[in-house]
Every structure is written in structure tokens, then in C-alpha cells.
């Protein structure tokens, strides 16, 4: 249960660079009225960023050639089906984790 001053300073540095991008937009939109085209662009961000996070996890870029991350792709199929039919965050997460646990158990 110890730490050092240099470690504390490093963590504070990381905290500041994480905190600024999170908070600056909240301050910005209070003082600047965003143009209509920016608001329309922002309306695409939720689905785009969620898609990007999902897609990124389905690829494996560790080798020289980018391939599909087959384990994640296989686990993704039942996960997606449950998401589409139940539209439930909780059920989807449970099915996803169980599928992955079973896959890892057999592979």
C-alpha cells in the first residue's frame, strides 16, 4: 500500500489530459451556440462511435495483415441476435459473456 511522489505526479498528469477533453465541450456549448450543421453532424456521433467501438473489436490488427478476430466474431453472432430480438442491454451482456466463456472453455 505505497506509492511515490513521482507516481502521484504521473497520475495527476494523466488525470488532467483525460479530464480536459471530457469537460471542455461542456464549457464550450454554454458560451457558443453551435451551428445547425454541427448539431446535425453530432447527431451522427452516437451510432458512429458505437459502431466503431464494436467494429474495432471484431478485427485483429496485431499481425502484419489485419484479419477478423474470429473468437469475437463468433461470440458476436448470438450477442447481436439477442440484442436485435430483446433490445435489452442486460440480456445481451449476459449472453455475450456466457458465449465467450463457453468458447474460451472449449478452445
Amino acid at each position: 500500500m505505497t506509492t511515490s511522489l513521482s507516481m502521484i505526479l504521473l497520475m495527476i498528469g494523466c488525470a488532467i489530459v483525460t479530464w480536459l477533453p471530457r469537460v471542455i465541450p461542456f464549457m464550450l456549448v454554454r458560451n457558443v451556440k453551435l451551428p445547425d450543421v454541427v448539431l446535425r453532424w453530432l447527431s451522427y456521433i452516437p451510432i458512429c462511435i458505437l459502431s466503431a467501438l464494436v467494429l474495432e473489436s471484431l478485427f485483429n490488427s496485431e499481425g502484419t495483415i489485419v484479419t477478423l478476430n474470429w473468437l469475437n466474431v463468433i461470440a458476436f453472432i448470438p450477442t447481436l441476435i439477442v440484442a436485435i430480438f430483446t433490445k435489452s442491454l442486460f440480456k445481451t451482456v449476459i449472453v455475450g459473456v456466457l458465449t465467450m466463456a463457453i468458447l474460451k472453455f472449449f478452445l
Partner: peptide, 15 residues
């Protein structure tokens, strides 16, 4: 494989 919980969550939110 618990890290797949995140992928599943993003997938559900996306849908």
C-alpha cells in the same frame, strides 16, 4: 473473456 462484456454492451446500445 469477461472483456467481451464491453463489446456486447456497445452492440446492444448500437441496436
Amino acid at each position: 473473456g469477461l472483456d467481451f462484456a464491453l463489446v456486447a454492451m456497445f452492440a446492444a446500445l448500437l441496436i
